[in-house]
Nucleic acid binder design. Sequence first.
DNA 1: GTGGTCTAGACCACC
DNA 2: GTGGTCTAGACCACG
Lengths: 127, 127, 127, 127
Amino acid sequence: MVISIRDGSDIPIYQQIRNQIVLGISDGRLQPGEQLPTVRALAEEIGINTMTVSKAYQILKSEGYIITDRRSGARVQSSFRRQGEMTAENKELLRKIISEAKISGMSWEVFREECERYYSEGNIVDE
Amino acid sequence: MVISIRDGSDIPIYQQIRNQIVLGISDGRLQPGEQLPTVRALAEEIGINTMTVSKAYQILKSEGYIITDRRSGARVQSSFRRQGEMTAENKELLRKIISEAKISGMSWEVFREECERYYSEGNIVDE
Amino acid sequence: MVISIRDGSDIPIYQQIRNQIVLGISDGRLQPGEQLPTVRALAEEIGINTMTVSKAYQILKSEGYIITDRRSGARVQSSFRRQGEMTAENKELLRKIISEAKISGMSWEVFREECERYYSEGNIVDE
Amino acid sequence: MVISIRDGSDIPIYQQIRNQIVLGISDGRLQPGEQLPTVRALAEEIGINTMTVSKAYQILKSEGYIITDRRSGARVQSSFRRQGEMTAENKELLRKIISEAKISGMSWEVFREECERYYSEGNIVDE
DNA sequence: GTGGTCTAGACCACC
DNA sequence: GTGGTCTAGACCACG
């Protein structure tokens, strides 16, 4: 999977990496149990510091998306806790997005379709 | 309208203020043309520096949500440009939220309902 | 001549008045020697403080655009010093405008036409 | 590139900085992708507070002229959206300038030449 | 090292 | 009274 970094972005690089890997997991490009590139390899590929990649992996690990192993490096978690809830932070973000969408005059139908499109991009195949 | 700030949040205070005012506009608690608290009053109420509030107001102004007037202070815009589009940043955020929701096992129906609930909270009354 | 004030503008009201009167003189809506409304009348018409209109008139007077007279109030200057030069401030503003136009990809021809259009709006008839 | 500030000017310092950098971009003294001085360095050079420079950079960033990067500081955008339009504010300013030029007796030909001269000062080299 | 945030307190122009 | 600007100095996250 290709990780691309936007240079001018306000989002820290380690967050961008983290987000793209989560996205990859959600749409099936990264399968449960699949091996991730080593910290060093990914850092070199993107052209950034290994510390930055390492931080991204640490976060992914602490969030339960990946597991790390001294021998085999990092792998995607093979089964996820499916509590079916959004984090408080994501709820707040969603509120922000929706409030701006409403003010901009976007109808609920159009917004719903946009979400549905994102929702149907690939599917997780686990267990 | 009450503005509440979470101290430990990684979202800057001025952004929190900005977001809550946009939310207030979108759900009708702040009506078009309505007067906002003065920079000094809001700063004192929240217990922060006037500069921080001022920065929030300037962002809101540059985004077209409010107008500032030397006479009467800050007021909510009386009419918004309704282009019916999300910003690129919001699209990216929405993707992130949805990818995480999917992995957590949240079904499309549940997510849709959550969004619909936010969407129906109050309505903008354009004049 | 109708003077209209934009509420949310960054330009101070007295400047807006001043600019519109200068514009009126340049395009012929205000003829040399023509009587301007009294400070009080204009203030009431626009719905602002008399001080503000008074300040606008003072500036116009100091710039030589109008003359004031205890009896007949304010009148447009009947003949202007035609030195055919821009002020240093206007040169700087023009540079700013042109630099932004260039970066935005506006061609010299299009810019020239825009200027020409403004230039031909009405004509001064004096002497 | 040298940034010079006029102390008595009614244009805020951060705006003067902003304008001069835009000018530098438009006439090619600042090339796309080129590194700008750091906030601290520029502040010290001019003899002002870092906040003031920072504000200038943030405006330039929000206008799309530069990007800021935690790694390498601030850099000129490498490609600009070329919509070929003036902002409403610039149109208004241009009207004001032209109205005053006309009254001062400046002929269209002289004004046109002045503009053309500014227009031909350097050229943007987009990559 | 970089830019980003925030404070406390000051002064200004506008109305 | 209002918002806007600026300072001096601090602390933070990022890389």
